[in-house]
Design a protein around this nucleic acid. Structure first.
Lengths: 222, 222
DNA sequence: GCAAAAGTGTTAGGTATACACCCATGC
DNA sequence: GCATGGGTGTATACCTAACACTTTTGC
């Protein structure tokens, strides 16, 4: 493919991906060390990188999580594009940010040389404009949870209704009445019982459910 | 500012802006002629252009509407970033799309050499990926109308409740009961009466309202 | 038998929906 | 006085929110 005149190509296009996971009922996000003197010395940032000539930004996000974080099976959706002139002090980078969600068993097993899941409330000042990106991502996550079935990507394949409720309570930062929550979610008819029960818990075992559809559906929730 | 290595700068970053207006109760969008042989001959597309080194994409969108369409006072919000490798067949362009909204008096008075407002339902096949962009924009517009006070940017500064209802009915493509619509919108407490009435209409003149706040607020609507 | 979490129904208050007639103005 | 759109209230169904006790399991 032809290229546009060089003077129009002053910016690089990157993707950045805050990948969220719930670990022990606490929202975590994947960060890695950044050490790019003089501006970004020993700071944390989300995984990200520059897109290739042969891919769109969706594909770049998937590739970069794989290459830089050894992460597969991440649910991704585009978040927002950040383009302030000085958002990366080294040179002009326009970043198409994505939100990534992984199931807890993926995050629990995660081991990588420099990337790790850190509790969102414990994050320090991040590199680039990633604090702003985080704020945008959290707001979007709350919105999406409230009117779609996106919670399925933060839960194991099968889960208890209490686990599902905990996802909502953790991310929306409010509590729900157990009976009302169950009534609501069950009448939406998006879950089905697996027929299995929890095993090895030291209390009454709960019934396990799964989402009927792997699609993220629009739902009237909260 | 330093530049990244040239081999990473294969793409240009552009913005594209479908600008919507309601004219006589019909949704219109601003398009201009594109004539870029061999791929795009005498086609229509939304206003758009390449960002400058000194601006972010928000600023670029505002500037381009002014420069290429002589349009000011457009409400803008970022829509989505389109990055498919072949979305522009001439060379690699990553487009950060915005939605623009203008008040009917602006659209009615609009005169420009090649840009014009065309009814959305009458649009032909557009250049680039602008049909896909339109689809995304319309879906977003419906969503925003349903849970924010964005309608204010498609209405004159003062308006009747029937005009407001027509905005909702046109964009959401459903009808509302007049009494229930009024009750709902008035109990939300976002409107105030101007004290003025319509003049020169050949029926009973309606009371004129305005939005209390110029901010776009989140509201529980439909 | 005790600790821990699962599971389950009812009531009251508020919100959404459906529906029809009179009013003010221009011509 | 007629045509046009403006403006208003009520009754019903539905949904939401508040609330407490019994069950099952492991130890």
């Amino acid at each position: 493919m032809n290229k546009a005149p060089i003077e129009l190509r002053f910016a690089v296009v990157a993707v950045d991906v805050p990948v969220f996971a719930l670990l022990d009922g606490v929202l975590h996000v994947l960060v890695s060390e950044v050490n790019k003197p003089p501006h970004y010395i020993n700071m944390l940032a989300f995984l990200g990188g520059i897109i290739d000539e042969s891919e769109n930004t969706d594909e770049a996000a998937t590739r970069i999580l794989k290459e830089k974080g050894n992460l597969n099976s991440v649910y991704l959706e585009q978040l927002y594009t950040f383009s302030n002139v000085n958002r990366d002090k080294r040179n002009r980078v326009v970043s198409v940010a994505y939100i990534g969600l992984v199931k807890p068993e993926v995050a629990e097993a995660y081991k990588h040389s420099d990337a790790r899941f850190v509790a969102v409330i414990k994050l320090p000042k991040l590199a680039y404009d990633h604090n702003e990106m985080l704020k945008t991502a959290l707001a979007r996550l709350q919105g999406k949870l409230s009117y779609t079935s996106i919670a399925q990507h933060l839960l194991p394949r099968t889960f208890t209704l209490t686990e599902l409720q905990t996802v909502y309570e953790t991310i929306l930062q409010r509590e729900f009445d157990k009976r009302n929550f169950r009534k609501k979610i069950l009448t939406l008819d998006v879950l089905e019982e697996t027929g299995e029960m929890q095993a090895g818990v030291k209390n009454r075992p709960a019934a396990l459910y799964r989402f009927k559809s792997k699609q993220v559906l629009d739902l009237p929730l909260f």
